[in-house]
Design a protein around this nucleic acid. Sequence first.
DNA 1: CAAATATAGTGAAACGTTTCTAATAAAAAG
DNA 2: CTTTTTATTAGAAACGTTTCACTATATTTG
Lengths: 325, 325
Amino acid sequence: MVTLRDVANKAGVAVSTASYALNNSSKISLATRKKVHKASRDLGYQPHGIARNLKKQKTETIGLFLNDLSGPYYSEVIQGVQDVVSAHGYDLIVGSASGGTNSTAYKFLLEKRVDGAVILAPKINDAEISRVAKASLPIIVLDRRLDSDYIKYVLIDNLNGAYQAVSHLINRGYHKIVYLSGPEDSFDNQERFKGYQRALLENGFNLMPQRIISGNFTEKEGYQVISGFLAQEERIDAIFSANDEMAIGAIQAIREMSFKIPDDIAIVGFDDIRLASYINPPLTTIRHPKYEMGRFATNMVFQVLHGSKAESVVLPTQLITRQST
Amino acid sequence: MVTLRDVANKAGVAVSTASYALNNSSKISLATRKKVHKASRDLGYQPHGIARNLKKQKTETIGLFLNDLSGPYYSEVIQGVQDVVSAHGYDLIVGSASGGTNSTAYKFLLEKRVDGAVILAPKINDAEISRVAKASLPIIVLDRRLDSDYIKYVLIDNLNGAYQAVSHLINRGYHKIVYLSGPEDSFDNQERFKGYQRALLENGFNLMPQRIISGNFTEKEGYQVISGFLAQEERIDAIFSANDEMAIGAIQAIREMSFKIPDDIAIVGFDDIRLASYINPPLTTIRHPKYEMGRFATNMVFQVLHGSKAESVVLPTQLITRQST
DNA sequence: CAAATATAGTGAAACGTTTCTAATAAAAAG
DNA sequence: CTTTTTATTAGAAACGTTTCACTATATTTG
């Protein structure tokens, strides 16, 4: 391995001089700067990032930590984060949070391998996040309401989004509306449920426990639980699914039982994933600004890093009406 | 920041002793080991990963570098890589290669921030990869045929896949088959074109230049170029699209012009992305083992890292017949 | 022309670990 | 009772940078 020392030797200067020269410090005369650069090029010198990080006590890297790297849902968020990180001349690394306290995410946070982080990973709990955040490692969370000096959140307005969705169903004349739920411990799910509840109550309907069906945000589960539900006696006329994935499964279940969508049963999802507009019938859903979330969050990371205050924020959602209602 | 030195002081031992103790070396008596662990816990000590990396001259991190982090196409590959990396107790970081020589990908490779890498990013060119690969940094590429001591490839059998696709069309009686091409400089595209060509020639058809339409792998482009093509006089009866994205765009174009699929025009894609089975009509396509690619590649990284030889490999593809043909 | 200042370069410490080698003390062997 | 071995701990160097404090020249100033 060719180190700075080798370059310095070849150029016939001290290693400190070589360092200054390569960083183009004005302390070093142009002539020796040239000499050092040449030596560096000749030897094919590459600075050792890790050594530099250690000395400078920073990595100029921002981490984005996700529950699971393969969720297609994330891609727009990632893009937003990437754009802002690059704009600041930093690097972005994406890591997984699966594996709990010995996940890559947790390790990198703990070991100061990143200078800031955006977290969208329910698997890392609040206490752990609070423990590692500091002035030199601000954290923005996208999946919970957590706020302190060095931790801010960017959320979407889940509650209002769900409220919009269910109100829309009610306005169209659907009254027996099922809530197809995500996992109980999901923050998003909880908020969306609140929105469902509020829309019902404000329109004079009761919350009927038998119309709350629990799922886990996956298409498969959506298919299965809705198949099961429709096979029983109670008739309903609409479904509000806590996310699009389950809604897609539900649509398949509904069609298999030869109910007509939206005439017999209407359905609204949440997220506006790509598939939503391609499925048959195209799915009415709640769109939220995923790319913007990424941008907001990352800008906040840099704000805190630069010593200014950042304010947590909740972004609005939008009802996208398609043929499923 | 609490360092090993602090722990050592608190425990009343030398820092070397503290290091051995925390790493549970048998050189240190159980009594002092306990003492040091306690001091560590009391102070909330966290080892500094960067410092350790520098000293040990390794990071125990594998990089996966993609052209662009937001491609949903990658998610299965990522999963395969992640699974193998975790199984080896290493960490995975995913980084972008966009930005060329000052992309995160390139920087991390150059600066030895990872111990091995899987690359699926045409934006990084062969020369650069060859330059950085070494025994202590093996690289597996997924998007080209590049082979040396420390560089191996895992590819899918693009040529045969395309051959299967076009043969299938011919067997079904379609004879005027358009090739909807990806970018000329894409390795995948080149191979797929060769497969198209071979299938035609082997079945006694000629390659007709006006039936080669250039696209860029995006849905939008697929829609536009096929719309334009169909508006002109020449009648065709099938399209082989170099990927599913373009095929989806093409399907929309075809339907808008009220041709029937597959009666008037049949279409086959390549990749078997998720949307392929949801689109109307469901798309016949070539499936390839994306998850397996990730697994193979990552296993090879570790093989080379452990000093054994790895063999580049080409994985088979599979024709998935759906209603578009 | 002496004194003050600017310029160019150097040496060494530091970042936080790991690990080699040496030192000490206790135990075993002769 | 001396010598050798073993167990435990300590000291110091090393990983590859950056940067502080300093020296030695060269230049400016009064």
